[in-house]
């Protein structure tokens, strides 16, 4: 039996993920490889990966309400929490989770974002943490606003938080986005709809989690992240000649 940090990675299900070419999301049209991917089993280059210790984290790194200026950012206060798991449903401990998102008005702190909504002088827009021994992570932040973007004439991004996650192998590297339960813009979003199935889209929608909310303080949303797993049979690791 292998553990969550060793062994060959389970192949990606490319029909579950968005394909590279998605006409509805226009920027993908010229950025999508047109040749077939060269597929083969993972090697040590994918099975190993960088490690990040909790000692590199600052005290406020996972508190996006306070980590920019020390004064609170404007918006609906929320906890975002969940577990990093693998496809074998095992926790993935000690991995770096990074997030970034727009402010409560739907504006990013980025020179290329010229949306009408103003910057919040106290919101930087990013946070990071390292999953604990049970794979758990949490952030305190504000709920980001929806915003328009120039894909179609009147396309809007639903409220979302970008998430970057490491596994224990470089081949597990994943970036995705978390959406909020009940947002009517989810079904209308061309980026959401790059995902082929409703079942897969649902995996990116965080439910409101009243049990984790703090009375008179903040609401909570639960978002579990699933990374590629590793094959687990004993025979995988048989010695030569067995």
């Amino acid at each position: 039996m292998t553990d969550a940090a060793h062994g060959p990675l389970i192949g990606r299900d490319r029909l579950w993920h968005p394909p590279a070419y998605t006409a509805g999301y226009k920027t993908s049209v010229t950025r999508a490889p047109s040749r077939a991917l060269v597929a083969m089993g993972s090697t040590l280059s994918e099975e190993t990966g960088p490690a990040f210790g909790r000692d590199m984290l600052g005290e406020m790194d996972n508190n996006l309400i306070l980590n920019f200026t020390g004064q609170p950012a404007v918006g609906e206060r929320i906890i975002m929490h969940g577990r990093v798991l693998d496809e074998n449903a095992r926790p993935v401990p000690n991995v770096l989770v990074e997030i970034w998102h727009a402010n409560a008005g739907g504006r990013y702190r980025h020179k290329k974002d010229g949306y009408l909504a103003p910057l919040d002088p106290n919101f930087g827009g990013c946070g990071r943490t390292v999953s604990n021994a049970e794979g758990r992570y949490e952030f305190l932040t504000i709920r980001p606003g929806a915003y328009p973007w120039p894909n179609g004439v009147n396309h809007w991004r639903p409220m979302h938080i970008h998430i970057s996650v490491f596994g224990h192998g470089f081949g597990q590297r994943l970036i995705t986005q978390m959406y909020f339960e009940g947002d009517p813009l989810i079904a209308r979003c061309p980026i959401v709809n790059t995902i082929p199935s409703q079942e897969a889209i649902s995996a990116l929608i965080a439910p409101l989690d009243m049990n984790a909310s703090i009375p008179l303080d903040c609401l909570a949303y639960k978002f579990d992240i699933v990374l590629r797993g590793r094959r687990q049979t004993f025979f995988e690791n048989r010695r030569e000649g067995m």
């Binding site: 990606r12 299900d13 579950w16 993920h17 968005p18 999301y25 993908s28 798991l85 693998d86 496809e87 074998n88 449903a89 970008h162 994943l174 970036i175 995705t176 986005q177 980026i191 959401v192 790059t194 995902i195 897969a200 889209i201 995996a203 990116l204 992240i225 699933v226 990374l227 590629r228 797993g229």
Partner: peptide
């Protein structure tokens, strides 16, 4: 479980 679907 299924891997979380990727987004740009």
């Amino acid at each position: 479980l299924r891997e979380s679907p990727s987004q740009t």
